[in-house]
C-alpha cells in the first residue's frame, strides 16, 4: 500500500517538518488577524458611515475572491507592479492575514452588536462608570462569544495553508510529492501511503481544535 516508504530514512520526519511549516504560517497569520480584527471590529462598532462603507467593500472582496487568487496577486502581481520581491512565505502571511482580519473584524462587530442595550443600561443603573461597564459586563460577554469563533478561524487558517504549495513553499503536501518522486522505482504505490498520511496529519491538526471550539460554544451558550 506504500506506507513502508514513510519508514525509510527520515521521510516521516520530513513530512512532520512540512506540517510544522504549515502550522507556523497559519499561527503567525492568526495572531495578526486577531489583533487587527479586534481593532477594526471596535472601530466598526462606532458606526461611522465612512468606516462602515470602506469595511463593507473590503469584506466583500475577501468574501468573493478565492484565497488562491489573492495569493497569486500578491506573489506574482507585486513583483511585476511594484518591483517588490516578496518571499513566498511573506506573501502567504500577507494574504492570510488580509483574509483573517476581515473575518475576525466581522465577528467582533457581530458580537458587539449582539449585546443588548439593557446590559449597558443595567450597568449604569447599578452605578458603574463606563470603564467598569466594559471591564465587568460587556468585555467578558464578548470574550465568551468570540473565543469559540476565533478558535474556529485557526482550523480554517490551517486548512487554507495547504494552498501555499501552489506558490512554491515546501510544506507537507510538497514534501509528500518529493518523497513519492524519489521512491518512484522502489515503491510505486507510495502515493497511496503518503497522501493517506498527509490527509490524516491535517485531520489530527484540525480535529482537536474544532472539538475544543464546539465544546466551548456549548459550555458558554448562555
Amino acid at each position: 500500500m506504500g506506507f513502508d516508504v514513510l519508514l525509510k530514512g527520515n521521510n516521516m520526519m520530513r513530512l512532520l517538518e512540512g506540517v510544522g511549516v504549515a502550522l507556523k504560517i497559519s499561527l503567525i497569520s492568526v495572531v495578526i488577524s486577531i489583533v487587527l480584527g479586534v481593532v477594526i471590529g471596535v472601530l466598526l462598532a462606532l458606526k461611522r458611515p465612512v468606516i462602515t462603507a470602506v469595511f463593507r467593500a473590503y469584506l466583500e472582496i475577501v468574501r468573493i475572491m478565492p484565497q488562491m487568487v489573492l495569493l497569486f496577486i500578491v506573489y506574482f502581481g507585486t513583483t511585476k507592479a511594484l518591483g517588490l520581491n516578496l518571499s513566498a512565505e511573506a506573501a502567504s502571511i500577507i494574504v492570510f492575514s488580509f483574509w483573517g482580519t476581515a473575518e475576525m473584524a466581522d465577528l467582533v462587530r457581530g458580537a458587539l452588536a449582539g449585546i443588548p442595550v439593557i446590559q449597558y443600561e443595567g450597568s449604569v443603573s447599578l452605578g458603574m462608570n463606563t470603564f467598569q461597564t466594559y471591564r465587568y459586563v460587556i468585555v467578558p460577554q464578548i470574550i465568551r462569544r468570540m473565543i469559540p469563533l476565533s478558535i474556529n478561524l485557526i482550523t480554517r487558517m490551517i486548512k487554507t495553508t495547504s494552498l501555499v504549495m501552489m506558490i512554491g513553499i515546501v510544506e507537507v503536501l510538497k514534501v509528500g510529492q518529493q518523497i513519492i518522486e524519489a521512491n518512484r522505482k522502489s515503491s510505486p504505490d507510495a502515493a497511496f501511503g503518503v497522501f493517506a498520511t498527509v490527509f490524516l496529519l491535517y485531520f489530527l491538526a484540525c480535529w482537536p481544535i474544532s472539538m475544543l471550539s464546539k465544546y466551548l460554544e456549548k459550555k458558554w451558550e448562555n
Binding site: K159, S162, F195
Partner: peptide, 16 residues
C-alpha cells in the same frame, strides 16, 4: 470538515 480540499483532491486523484 477538518481537512483541506487540496489534500482531499490529491488523495482522490493520486492515491486512489
Amino acid at each position: 470538515r477538518n481537512t483541506p480540499l487540496l489534500v482531499q483532491l490529491f488523495f482522490i486523484y493520486f492515491a486512489l
